[in-house]
Computed example of a mutant assay.
Amino acid sequence: MPRTRHLPVNARRSLVTVTPSLLAAAGVLSAFLSLRDRLPGRMATHIGPGGEADGFSGQGSFLAVALGVLIGDAVLFGGLVHWMRTNPGPQRVIAVIGGAVAVLTGWLVVAVLLANADVDDPESVTLPGLQAALAFGAAAVYAALGWLICGRVEEGEASSEPPADAARLSLGASETAVWSRTTGSRVLPATGVLVLAAGLVVGITTGWLSALPMLVTGAPLALLTGARVTADRRGITVAPTFASWPRLNIPLERIAEAGNRPVSPFREFGGWGYRIRPGASGIVLRTGDALVATLATGKEFVVTVDDAATAAALLNALADRERRTPAGG
C-alpha cells in the first residue's frame, strides 16, 4: 500500500480492509498449487483444541471454501467501510477488523496446507499451537499498522449540524405541555430470538453450560421491543415500554437546541440500542426520523422516534423559557 498518506481517508480505509483479503487469497492459491501433488486426496481441514485433526474434506472443496471466505471477507467488510463513510469512528474499527481477520484466516489456511503435505494418513495431521499464536500475532500487528494507516478524521468531515432556525412551539408564560411517543426495534428482538434458538440447539446437542452465554445474551435482546420517549419540562426521558426502569434523562438545562433528522443506526452508530461514538450518544432502535438534541457541551443526544419535529419544537420552546426565567424558576 504505497503512498497511503496521499490518499483520501476513505480510500485508505478501504485498502486496509480489502488488500489483506486479496493478498491472502493469492497466497492460499499459490500455496495450494505448489503443494497440490504432495497433498492427500482427503485432507485434514479442521484441527481440534489438542492440535489434532478432527475434520476432513477433499482438496477442491477445501480450496473453494478458503477462497470463498477470504473473498467474502473483502466484500463484506469493504462494503461496510464504504457504507459507514459518514461515521468515521466505527468505520476505522471495522476497517481494521476486516483486514486483521483476513490475515488470521490466510495464515491458518496456509498452515493447514503445509501440515497436510506429504502425509499418508490425514488423521495423523497435527498443527502446533505455535502456529495459532503466530497467526493471532500477525493479525494483531496488522491491526496496529492498519489503525495508523486509517488515520483520524477531523471533526466536521462527517458531521450533521442541527438547523439554526429550529421551530418553537408557542407556549404561554404559565402554559406547559408534554409530548410522548413509543419507538421500537425489529432488529434487536429478531436477533435475540435467533440467539435464543441457537442457545437451545447448543443446549440440547452439547450441554446447557455451553449454551448459557447465548441464553443470557438472547433473552434481554428478545425483550428489547421498544422504548417510550417523553419530552417535557424535565427534558428528554427514555424508558422501556413495559417498565419505568431503567430510564435515561437529559435535563432541559443541558439542551442548547433540538432538531430532527433521519438516522441510520449501523452507518452512523455501528449498531442498534444504546450507542456512544465521538461527539454523540443516544438510543437508536431503527432507521428513520430521530430527535437530535445539541447539548451545551456541543455533543449530540439522539433518539430514533416518529414525530421528532414536534418534540424538538416543544423542547426548544421550553428551553427558551427556562433560559428567560431567572434561576429557572
Results as ranks from 00 to 15, higher is better:
100 A>L: 01
192 G>I: 04
176 T>A: 10
243 A>G: 10
35 L>E: 00
112 V>R: 10
272 W>R: 07
189 P>N: 04
299 K>C: 01
319 A>Q: 00
11 A>F: 09
267 R>W: 06
57 S>T: 11
180 S>A: 12
138 A>E: 12
204 I>S: 15
139 A>Y: 13
116 N>G: 04
156 G>P: 13
246 P>T: 01
155 E>V: 15
290 A>E: 02
39 L>Y: 05
239 A>C: 02
36 R>D: 12
156 G>V: 15
68 G>C: 02
112 V>F: 04
255 I>C: 10
13 R>S: 09
24 A>I: 12
29 L>G: 07
46 H>S: 05
96 V>G: 01
60 G>F: 09
232 D>F: 10
255 I>P: 02
244 S>H: 12
40 P>L: 05
62 F>Q: 01
195 V>W: 12
176 T>E: 13
59 Q>L: 09
254 R>P: 01
237 T>E: 08
207 G>N: 13
247 R>A: 12
108 L>M: 15
198 A>F: 15
30 S>A: 15
231 A>T: 10
3 R>T: 15
32 F>K: 01
151 G>W: 14
274 Y>A: 14
95 A>C: 07
174 S>V: 08
244 S>I: 06
261 R>N: 03
221 L>K: 09
140 A>E: 12
291 L>A: 00
233 R>W: 01
99 G>E: 05
227 A>G: 03
12 R>K: 14
265 P>S: 08
307 D>L: 08
181 R>V: 10
95 A>E: 10
252 L>G: 00
207 G>D: 09
205 T>V: 06
202 V>R: 14
178 V>T: 15
222 A>I: 03
61 S>T: 13
172 G>H: 11
148 L>C: 13
7 L>K: 09
88 P>G: 11
18 V>T: 10
125 V>C: 11
300 E>N: 12
101 V>D: 08
16 V>Q: 09
204 I>E: 13
285 L>V: 14
88 P>S: 07
53 A>M: 03
159 S>N: 06
188 L>M: 11
302 V>E: 04
76 L>K: 02
89 G>M: 06
129 G>Q: 00
151 G>N: 11
192 G>W: 09
312 A>F: 05
229 V>I: 04
313 A>L: 00
300 E>K: 13
102 A>D: 02
24 A>E: 08
250 I>H: 08
12 R>C: 07
275 R>T: 15
11 A>H: 13
241 T>R: 15
73 D>W: 05
14 S>E: 04
179 W>Q: 03
283 I>C: 14
